[in-house]
């Protein structure tokens, strides 16, 4: 058993193709990558929204804003 079909290097390299493990799962891998990518945007956007909600709730007097502007 071998996860890429090769059990030894007693081969002529011109006859060898893909050597990554679990060949045949490429479509599944691409779907996982798509979910990972889209999922990241969802999680990131939610986290950013929470951060801004915190920012909006803080510093009602505006003192910190003025200090931040002074710091440039």
């Amino acid at each position: 058993m071998s996860t890429n079909g090769l059990t030894s290097w007693a081969v002529d390299l011109k006859d060898v193709g893909a050597i990554y493990p679990f060949q045949g799962t490429e479509t599944v891998l691409v779907i996982i990558l798509l979910v990972f990518w889209i999922g990241w945007h969802v999680l990131q956007t939610r986290a950013e929204t929470r951060e801004f909600e915190h920012d909006l709730a803080a510093d009602k007097s505006g003192d910190e804003q003025r200090k931040a502007i002074d710091r440039y």
Partner: peptide
């Protein structure tokens, strides 16, 4: 786990 059964070396 991922590379289980693959040759570790080109030597016998």
């Amino acid at each position: 786990f991922m590379l289980w059964g693959q040759p570790s070396s080109p030597y016998e």
